[in-house]
Design a protein around this nucleic acid. Structure first.
Lengths: 215, 215
DNA sequence: TTGCAATCGATAAATTTTTACCGATAAAAA
DNA sequence: TTTTTATCGGTAAAAATTTATCGATTGCAA
C-alpha cells in the first residue's frame, strides 16, 4: 500500500511541510478539496511545482476540483512520517530548549518529548511543560531505557558533540542540532542542522539587494 | 571595489554561512590559510563545490596553499553583509524571543537588537539581556524613531501578520519570521521564514529511510 | 445532451546546480 | 635549478530542479 522508499528532494520535503500548514488552515475553514491553482494563489508558488511536489506523495487529483483535502493532508503526513508517534529527548533547557518544549505544534508532527537534560543543578528534577529535566550524565541510560530514536541538541557549542555522542551511545539515530557548530554522527545515524545563521544569511543578503538600488 | 549585486543562490548563501563558522574556528586555532581540500575533509562537502561557492565572494586562492583565511572570512562577511551594522527589533519575548535576545553570536553577524516588544503587561518595561521590552502597540513608532530595517517575529500565529504589518508601517523592510504561519509582505520588502517544521520534515523522512531497511 | 471552463498529469524543454576534467601556477623537494 | 606535488579556476559535462506545453478528464451550465 505504502509507496516505497523513493527519494524525495529535501527542498520538496520542505515545501510539503509548508503545504501541510496551509492545508490544515483550509481544513479548519471547512474546505473539502483544494486545487493547485488555489494553493498557488495563496502561497505564491508555481502551480506546476505544487502538482509536482504532490505527485511525490502518491495522491492523485481530479480535474476541475483538485485534491481531496483530507486525503492530501494524510498523504503528506505519511510522506513526512508525521503520522508515526516518535519519542524524542532534548539536551539543554535554556531559553531555546524551553521554547521547544513549549512548542505545541510538535504534537501535530507525532513528535513527543519524553525527557529533557541539562547540567544545571537547579534545573535538574524540575519539570518544563510536563517534561522532567534529568542530569546530562544520564542521557545514554534514559535514551536506551525508553528506546528513543530522536535527540534534539539545544546546548552551547562547547558541549554539543559530547551530548551527541551520549545520545548515539544510548541508541539515538537521528539528531536535530540547533547548536551553531556542526556535529558529527556515524553513517548509521542522520543529523539535521537547524542553524539560525543560515536563514539569516539569506535575509541579510536579500535586504542588501533591496537597499542597493544604485546601478 | 565591491563586487556588484550578482545573484547568489540561496543554497550557496547557506553554505557560505556554514563555512564562516568553520573558518572562524580555524582562525581561532591560529591557521592563516585554508584549502578547499582541507575544508572538504572537515565539512564533508565536495571541494569543487566549495571552490565554486567561494568564487561568488570574489576571493581568489593561490595554488598549493589555498585561500588567505582572514581575507576569505572578510569576503564572506561582506557577501552576507555581516560586516554591516544592522539594528533589529523583535516582537514576542517568550522563550523563543528570549533565546534570540540571548544569542551572543548575533553580534558576529553585525546584528543588534535595538528593542523588543510584547503584549504581556508584566514584561513591558523590563529588560532582557539589556534590551528593553515595549508594548507591541508602539512597534511602528519605535521602528521609525530608530530607523530599524529588520524585524524578527517570535509571536504566536494569531498575531503574526498584525505584528508584521506594524513593522512594515514603521519602515521595516526585512522580516525574519519564526511563527509557523507564513506572513505576507509587499514587494518592497523581503521575508525569510525560519520554520522548525521544515527541517523537522527532512529529519523525520531521513530517519524513516534509515529505519526501513526492508526492500 | 452538448459545449465550455478548470484542472490534472504526462512529457518535454529550460534552467539551475553539481560534478568532472584539465592546464596553469605556486610552493616544496630534489 | 629542476622536478614534483598540491591546489586553483576556467570550461565542459552531468544531474537535478523548475517551468512549459498539451491532451484528457471532470463538473457545470446552456
Amino acid at each position: 500500500m505504502k509507496k516505497k522508499n523513493i527519494i524525495i528532494p529535501d527542498i520538496t520535503l520542505k515545501r510539503l511541510s509548508h503545504y501541510m500548514h496551509y492545508l490544515s488552515v483550509m481544513q479548519d475553514e471547512g474546505e473539502v478539496s483544494i486545487s493547485s491553482t488555489k494553493m498557488s494563489d495563496d502561497l505564491l508558488l508555481d502551480p506546476i511545482q505544487i502538482r509536482k511536489d504532490i505527485q511525490y506523495t502518491g495522491i492523485v487529483g481530479k480535474p476541475k476540483t483538485g485534491y481531496d483535502l483530507d486525503d492530501l493532508i494524510d498523504a503528506i503526513k505519511d510522506c513526512l512520517h508525521w503520522n508515526d508517534y516518535k519519542s524524542a529527548l532534548i539536551a539543554g533547557v535554556g531559553n531555546l530548549g524551553s521554547a521547544m518544549l513549549g512548542y505545541k505544534f510538535f504534537e501535530r508532527y507525532g513528535f513527543h518529548f519524553e525527557a529533557a537534560f541539562d547540567n544545571d543543578k537547579s534545573k535538574i528534577g524540575t519539570k518544563i511543560n510536563g517534561v522532567e529535566v534529568h542530569d546530562v550524565k544520564n542521557i545514554a541510560r534514559i535514551a536506551r531505557k525508553y528506546d528513543i530514536k530522536i535527540g534534539v541538541v539545544a546546548v552551547p557549542n562547547t558541549v554539543a558533540q559530547a551530548v551527541v555522542d551520549a545520545m548515539l551511545d544510548g541508541g539515538v539515530i537521528a539528531i536535530w542540532n540547533f547548536a551553531p557548530h556542526r556535529v558529527r554522527v556515524p553513517e548509521t545515524a542522520v543529523v539535521e542542522h537547524a542553524q539560525f545563521s543560515q536563514s539569516l544569511a539569506v535575509l541579510t543578503r536579500k535586504l542588501s539587494i533591496l537597499t542597493n538600488t544604485d546601478e
